[in-house]
């Protein structure tokens, strides 16, 4: 009762990275709160999965195993979470801010009438004092996220309702093994008690997984462009530089809204979070929502004609100039000086 629960997401039978990241965060929150860490895994053929989860510090693993539960479908998964949470009354529930978590989370919060904060970038435990009522709420989950298009940072709390629910994007938290020898217990749920037949009303007709052609998240070098790149043609220079030095092309939301490049390359709060060795920001002014997604890059180079672009403050190198002037010079030097 009153534990921290992480919904573990399965993607083609594989536990999603974001779930491990949340277990790592969940373990540290549970330690602070002096409670247990629980995980919930829903799918089919789940024997042996506990071996992957226990090292992250899971004390109790709830498993719902049924061939109708994979792949993910909204209503059956919602039903399991709602019924289980009504029994177990977790104080905190974490899930990935993925197409699954963002489909499931609000549905569950609506059923439980509890608050949900989307896309948190930090989660902390703290006290909240309401001076007017002279009331202190102890050990609340502070859910911190950029808001208002990423222009401000808000701390959200759920003083009265439980569970306190939050989603977090993949890559935002770090995953780390808690203890390779850690052992928890497995609780197999009787699926028929948690899901009614009527929940299976939406039929999957067809599903195909496309391996993403772009792998920005795991690229050690990223050449990213913003609105200041100015045109699709100039974006071509970014592709060329990325190809030459061995990196991927990313973009800010403004560049995507301008139609310079596709959504799959968006870096930032509402896109992908990256931590490359080298981040070359071309014509990116540096809205907070973008910075939140690339701040932890080891080296940041900003190429911008505006010397006062906010991104320059966090850059290691600032080149004041036009993208179309600077990039060809970089390409030229690299080609001439490497094999």
């Amino acid at each position: 009762m009153n534990n921290v629960t992480v919904y573990c997401e399965l993607d083609e039978g594989k536990i999603a990275d974001v779930s491990f990241e949340l277990l790592t965060k969940g373990r540290s929150l549970a330690n602070q709160l002096n409670c247990k860490l629980e995980a919930l895994l829903i799918g089919h053929n789940l024997k042996g999965y506990e071996k992957m989860l226990f090292p992250y510090g899971v004390d109790t693993l709830f498993i719902a195993d049924d061939n109708r539960l994979a792949p993910y479908s909204t209503l059956p998964h919602t039903s399991i979470l709602v019924n289980l949470f009504n029994e177990e009354k977790p104080q905190i529930v974490l899930m990935g801010a993925t197409t699954i978590g963002r489909d499931l989370g609000p549905r569950v919060s609506s059923a439980l009438k509890s608050g949900l904060t989307a896309d948190c970038t930090e989660l902390e435990i703290g006290d909240h004092e309401v001076t007017r009522d002279k009331k202190v709420y102890k050990d609340l989950l502070f859910q911190i996220r950029p808001a208002f298009g990423g222009n401000i940072i808000a701390t959200i709390i759920n003083p009265d309702c439980r569970p306190q629910m939050a989603t977090v994007r993949e890559g935002v938290m770090k995953k780390a093994i808690f203890n390779p020898q850690h052992k928890g217990k497995v609780v197999d749920l009787d699926v028929s008690k948690y899901v009614d037949e009527t929940a299976f009303v939406v039929k999957l007709i067809e599903r195909h997984v496309e391996e993403s052609k772009v792998d920005i998240k795991n690229s050690s070098v990223i050449v990213a462009g913003g609105f200041g790149v100015g045109s699709v043609e100039n974006f071509g220079l970014l592709y060329e530089l990325a190809a030459v030095i061995g990196g991927e092309v990313g973009a800010s939301r403004a560049a995507i809204d301008a139609g310079y490049v596709g959504h799959e390359r968006q870096i930032g709060q509402t896109g992908i979070t990256v931590r490359p060795k080298l981040y070359i920001a071309c014509g990116i002014s540096g809205q907070i929502q973008h910075l939140a997604g690339m701040l932890e890059s080891s080296i940041i180079i900003s190429i911008n004609s505006d010397p006062n672009a906010p991104i320059n403050k966090i850059a290691n190198y600032v080149i004041q100039g036009k993208v179309e002037t600077v990039i060809p010079k970089m390409i030229k030097y690299y080609k001439e000086n490497t094999k």
């Binding site: 009438k113 509890s114 608050g115 949900l116 904060t117 909240h128 502070f142 950029p146 808001a147 401000i152 940072i153 808000a154 701390t155 959200i156 709390i157 759920n158 003083p159 009265d160 309702c161 907070i288 910075l291 701040l295 940041i300 900003s302 320059n312 403050k313 966090i314 850059a315 290691n316 190198y317 600032v318 080149i319 004041q320 100039g321 036009k322 002037t325 600077v326 010079k329």
Partner: peptide, 23 residues
């Protein structure tokens, strides 16, 4: 509304010592 905004902040990022280069 179960969720309340505890506080709202303007974000200040830790500025780095950046090296200014010409083009």
């Amino acid at each position: 509304s179960p969720t309340k905004v505890k506080k709202v902040e303007n974000i200040v990022f830790q500025a780095k010592e950046s090296l200014k280069l010409e083009d």
